[in-house]
Design a protein around this nucleic acid. Sequence first.
DNA 1: CATGTTCTAGAATATTATTCTAGTCAAGCC
DNA 2: GGCTTGACTAGAATAATATTCTAGAACATG
Lengths: 234, 234
Amino acid sequence: MELNTQRKRTSKRRRDILDASLRCFMKHGIEAATIEQIREASGASSGSIYHHFGSKQAIAVALYLDGMEELAIVLRNAMQEQDDLRQGIRNVIAAYLLWVSENRDWALYLLRVATADLSRDEASTIDEINRRSREDLARWLRPFVDRGEIEQLPDELYASLIYGAATHFARHWLVGRLTLDVDFVVETLAHAVWCSISKPAPPDRSATNKSRNGKSKGLKSAANPLRSGKGASK
Amino acid sequence: MELNTQRKRTSKRRRDILDASLRCFMKHGIEAATIEQIREASGASSGSIYHHFGSKQAIAVALYLDGMEELAIVLRNAMQEQDDLRQGIRNVIAAYLLWVSENRDWALYLLRVATADLSRDEASTIDEINRRSREDLARWLRPFVDRGEIEQLPDELYASLIYGAATHFARHWLVGRLTLDVDFVVETLAHAVWCSISKPAPPDRSATNKSRNGKSKGLKSAANPLRSGKGASK
DNA sequence: CATGTTCTAGAATATTATTCTAGTCAAGCC
DNA sequence: GGCTTGACTAGAATAATATTCTAGAACATG
């Protein structure tokens, strides 16, 4: 674990370049930011920058991986609650939105790059991160599924159901289109998410009628709704 | 409405450039695609391209606006259902995912540019579109809110609750990370969304106990969850 | 201290967005 | 028909900027 001065210097330079890059990317736009700007902001020479990263795109990817890693840790920590899942889900959503609100630049950057076009290599690294994150979630939820507290669904969908609304909100909020109180949003989204994945009641026959018994019907009836939806023109 | 040959030629050229640009953007990446490639793919000269659009960025924005406009129409059409909101919401989600699956390139492009960094002007045009889209939704939902069928919420949140999960799913699906059957996803998401915004039962006291009565409690209790959430470290 | 490796600076190069110049073409007017 | 005007186009010229190259400094190690 001994870091000699070489390595210390190196990793500091790397970090300086990354930090400067994030600032430049957010200030001028990822595409518009120039190596010259990053060079100036970081104090490194262009040669040094290229030595460490190889291309501007590679800097962007490294930055993305850094951020995703950090966010994944935040979320993983929020998944500790083992008793009350409802509370746990609220914690996760709260943690996410809190992180977003405290790291606006960083969060916005992640949302921007998330769908950017990347090389095979880069994409597969990112896939890996996403896969792990999905697994974190699935592992956490499994006991609750087994106990019948929440619906059994493909792992892929849990992420969409749990993070979808929060992400959507964050995206618009960060761009300044929305102005709601974050605390309120947390509670509202947490409540909504909980309703959307929790199972009706225990083995209590005679469940409520209107809003909760539709599961199997909803899932099977109206065959091929994709073809019959009204807006399906084109 | 008479189009002289001049205008016909002009608008065809414009469209050719836009179409070619979308192809190039998706093939090489928005950033990586060059004017030269667009020139070749569209058959227009670089001079012509700049005459019509002024910059590569401007092409990207025009393309985005085009796509958003089309998608907005698809969604608006799906919001016709006036009787059964549950069905209506399913239609909307189905229409969205159907459109996405039938216009993958286009859909992916919209997701990519949605958060891209833009100039003041461009951003405000896009804000406008988003605002209108939010209004479409709010207007459609209002009667149902009045009748007490769904929760009363700030307009801003309806979009996140209704589109959030579908968008999240689409994002990952389009990048090829997920492989679920779209029909199944539509039903699942529609069901989840419905549960998350529909109101318990009518004025029927003695509602189910566990999963539906927590609204007010969920919203008020556990003050300031943002500060107390476990994952809130850093 | 000799030697190889990693890192850095800054100039040289290559790529690409953008601008400029000189036209072409259609449409209206005499 | 000729003439004029304005929109459009082609392709060369320019400028901005990513990337590569070369020489050397800083450091670790034997």
